[in-house]
Design a protein around this nucleic acid. Structure first.
Lengths: 343, 343
DNA sequence: TGTTAGCACTCTTAAGTTCTGAGTGCTAAT
DNA sequence: ATTAGCACTCAGAACTTAAGAGTGCTAACA
């Protein structure tokens, strides 16, 4: 168990290091007002804290820096989340502006978040989950081309152009579109392909001449993956952090950030509420020396998305955690308001 | 005027430097088979070429590197565009896969282009130009929300959700949507807002009760900017170039790449066909030590987009220029095929 | 017994030094 | 006109040195 004084020393070292990025020495600490002990005493405490694994040295005669275990302890026990009125005001302004639509709000939140923290923000759009098809429209553009437009009950719109088979005529196309629209309304997006295959293909075969020609084109509409949207803000922001003073580190970071799959991986095991992964606690190699803070937000029944901030392990945990948790509340609330009437 | 031998020397130096990124010395050059002169002779030629401004030294006793003027001369007079069958095959595969839609093709082209060259590729989607509205639909999602969907005759789809004024009832909404759709079909996208203001507001005022309430919401639909889509590939690719071995350079590059406006600026003064801007010839400060190669592609009557590659001034101009010009042809052709039937 | 002053020791970082190799410019010979 | 030869220059790597920050330990102190 840690003594009062050890807690104090640990806390002050981490706070100081987070601020300055420089190893903290005993003398510097002893000068602070809140610490009434001499440098020598602090040195002893530091040595003990190092033995316990909370602190590290960068070399044998350097000041101390927090270890990952140290950060973990700090996050779990030493931070009283401060409510940052000022920053929240900025964010609220973005969110509450009703003229923006959802995707813009998210995009802007990502940018503001990154701006306020100087870290890189990642927002994972809400999963489709229970979202249902509201309308499917097939609009011919010309004799050979058409565009299919899918609208969900949450107002999400997807579209997909395709070329038409030569044989089809416009009345057939219309008939087909009507059947599809009738049968698929209210079907959850993620079931579309299955329902199409199971219930509709047979039907269409009966009603439409030469349906086999059209099959592959329709099929392409529904096999369309529905990618979860990823919004990233401030990729270059994080470069301002002193830990990115190394070209190789930058390269590997950016190589990862280019790969949406890998980023999606990062956020895969997100839990409800706030999650903090420090350094090696992360599963993705490329960020084993960074920290990731995640917060989930809700959209209706069970649909969730994730807001995350990626920064050096030397992160302003206090600020970031309070900011994220407020933002996730705001977003859930805004989304709730937006969709409230659809129930 | 340059002598035959000077041309040869200049060309070999530039080719060599483009390949290795190291200053080229006289002895190394004289060893090459295609040069039958001694190092001393070449030194003399080099000194002359430097006097003329085509070459530079990095320090008083270094080998030579091309100056921007040197590159310019090289691009204008010394390269016979080589047709790269192999790379074009790769690109053609991407483009000709009919199941992809336009935006995906462009996105993938950008990525392949960057992959093949190791530079950063930028593709500016076609301007809206003459594109006309094909359909405007207003789909209510709930009592309080609706989504407006605009489809152009080229199959481009834009949508925008908004909240409904409390007063409006669904039959009014439908009436309104019908009037809008009737009146706006065939109107070029860029005129939408104007036509709406001039011809339709008055009409709606007459037919719809409490139209003033709805006005601001509708207005928001049409004042929506129609941003030209920007596709970027391989932002991190360029980091592998040795000229990006400097953290500050990376920072300024990425800061620029985060800003879509600035990128749009880069490509603003693009001319028809192939354009090459070397170093300080670029107007945007952030890329004054990079080169930008642009190629335009056509979509129907006058609508154009731009494909560009951004790399160090030490760029493989031969390869890049031939690749881009082929790609722009392929894209124009693919788009032409795609839309041919709409006329 | 817990705290502190003092001091020798360690290690990083910056600045200065030396050395080598690549490459030039000039001169004189071919 | 071309080339061999040589003195000279400079960047970059390898080493050395000096200063400063910080530690760990011991002994003195309250």
């Amino acid at each position: 168990m840690l003594t009062e004084r050890q807690l104090l020393v640990l806390q002050m070292i981490i706070d100081d290091f987070i601020e300055t990025a420089h190893p903290v020495g005993s003398r510097a600490l002893s000068k602070k007002e809140s610490i009434p002990y001499s440098a020598a005493t602090i040195r002893n405490e530091m040595a003990d804290l190092e033995d316990m694994g909370f602190l590290e040295k960068t070399h044998s005669s350097s000041g101390r820096i927090p270890s990952e275990k140290g950060y973990r302890y700090y996050v779990d026990h030493l931070i009283a989340p401060l409510s940052n009125q000022h920053n929240m005001k900025i964010i609220r302004n973005v969110i509450e502006d009703g003229f923006y639509e959802f995707e813009q709000i998210v995009q802007m939140s990502a940018e503001v978040l990154s701006e306020l923290t100087n870290y890189t923000s990642i927002i994972l759009g809400p999963e489709l989950g229970e979202t249902k098809l509201k309308q499917l429209q097939i609009l011919p553009l010309s004799v050979h081309t058409a565009v299919a437009i899918l609208v969900t009950d949450t107002g999400h719109v997807e579209h997909r152009s395709f070329t038409l088979p030569d044989e089809i005529n416009s009345s057939d196309l219309e008939k087909m579109a009507n059947i599809l629209n009738d049968r698929l309304q209210g079907v959850p997006i993620i079931w579309l392909e299955e329902v199409f295959q199971r219930e509709i293909v047979g039907l269409l075969k009966r009603y439409i001449r030469d349906f086999d020609q059209s099959y592959q084109y329709l099929q392409a509409i529904f096999s369309h993956e529905h990618p979860v949207k990823l919004y990233i803000g401030g990729k270059s922001n994080i470069l301002m952090q002193p830990e990115f003073n190394d070209v190789d580190k930058i390269r590997s970071f950016y190589t990862m950030m280019e790969n949406e799959n890998e980023i999606a991986n990062l956020l895969k095991n997100t839990k409800h509420g706030i999650g903090v992964s420090i350094g090696n606690e992360n599963e993705v190699d490329a960020i084993k020396d960074l920290s990731l803070i995640t917060a989930s937000y809700q959209l209706g029944e069970g649909q969730i998305g994730t807001i995350a901030l990626l920064g050096p392990t030397r992160m302003e945990y206090k600020k970031v955690i309070s900011l994220l948790s407020s933002l996730s509340n705001e977003m859930s609330e805004a989304l709730y308001k937006w969709y409230r009437a659809s129930e």
